[in-house]
Nucleic acid binder design. Sequence first.
DNA 1: GTGGTCTAGACCACC
DNA 2: GTGGTCTAGACCACT
Lengths: 128, 128, 128, 128
Amino acid sequence: MPWNFSQDRPIFQQIVDIIVMRILNGEYKTGDKLLPVRDFAVEAGVNPNTMQRALTEVENMGLIYTKRGDGRYVGENSVTVEKIKSEYVLRATHDYISSLKALGLQDEMIIQSVCEELKKQKTEGRNL
Amino acid sequence: MPWNFSQDRPIFQQIVDIIVMRILNGEYKTGDKLLPVRDFAVEAGVNPNTMQRALTEVENMGLIYTKRGDGRYVGENSVTVEKIKSEYVLRATHDYISSLKALGLQDEMIIQSVCEELKKQKTEGRNL
Amino acid sequence: MPWNFSQDRPIFQQIVDIIVMRILNGEYKTGDKLLPVRDFAVEAGVNPNTMQRALTEVENMGLIYTKRGDGRYVGENSVTVEKIKSEYVLRATHDYISSLKALGLQDEMIIQSVCEELKKQKTEGRNL
Amino acid sequence: MPWNFSQDRPIFQQIVDIIVMRILNGEYKTGDKLLPVRDFAVEAGVNPNTMQRALTEVENMGLIYTKRGDGRYVGENSVTVEKIKSEYVLRATHDYISSLKALGLQDEMIIQSVCEELKKQKTEGRNL
DNA sequence: GTGGTCTAGACCACC
DNA sequence: GTGGTCTAGACCACT
């Protein structure tokens, strides 16, 4: 099942986001060995070069590292993970609220929107 | 003062977003006449072609219309505005919450993040 | 005249070094427009992708920036240039002296080597 | 305590450098018997194949030789050692000075950098 | 015409 | 078998 990519952003970036997300939420744990680039590329349904580029980016972020001739591993640095995670949350929240305020929404309406969405997702979760 | 554009997204799209935002929040009102493309381009500090393309997009969304030989005007259709606005809010909220949940955050933590950001922005607003 | 690359290091890295060097020593000045990637690639005698990768790296270092659909320019930030320059000097000096000391050379012998090399290069310079 | 390797160069090469360095500075003396490959590999924390390759290189340089069924020994040829040593110094000095000159540094500034680094290392040495 | 992305496929060095 | 680099060539979006 090749991954699902949207057309409006570079594929390699979307791959970066997916992998980072999996590390941040614990799906890929410290010390885990990743699939070989080529296999990983097949799984994602992209060219090995594209996967390679994505992994290089993730490595530059400090989340994974490479053992030459061996493979890639999820980094030990849990501090980095927590830092990136909280930065992400802060930025996402800031962007979200700023955009709604720019639309003229009041604080209460924003909170209300959030609560409604939470309820909706809870209901959907039950029905799966 | 040329507008501020980030490098990671097409400039014309960012212009579209800004104009749409101004219509949605009432800065540009129904019936208002927009600046001529060239002047508008100068104000934004971009190439006229870029501004042209952005305006075409906004027109396709149904928010503005062109009087040939006269200029561009903000559309009369307030229903369209409200519809786009609520759709935007719903989608932004959904994306925001989905991404945080994917990171493993609980509902309470999400609400807490929102409230903190609201407080922070209120404080910043005072200090301006 | 295609540039001269050694085989023991990735070509793109050598290109990075060359471009960085040209910026640091003032051959490429603030605001200068670089050659288009493809032309630059031809000049260096490499594939456009290779040149692209090198330029991306230099951009990540903050020394150049891209105007979309226009071209690449040398960055304004002279602070960055001076910082990178002095870091380079410090590191090169440290590595150089450490390696000689590891070989058992005394301080005086190191200074003597440096002075001899300086003299030699001065002589060569005259003969060109 | 496994040796410390940087990721940007082949491990076997770094091992070669270390061993050569130890021979050049007298830590391994003429006639000394080296550890068996496997033990040596364990000490360095690398794969035996990697250590094997490194030792082969050092042997090709003429600094060590193999007695079949016995082990490896540091070569008798002190002339070779001195020759390699002086070549190394010359080349390192040349590369170092050339790179600084390419950055636009004057002779005096180069000498000053060297002296500062020597002072710094002397100070650090005292504090250990 | 500019940079950016992606694919395809090859070759190499390392472990 | 592993990652890394490079080439070739195509296509797209932006200005």
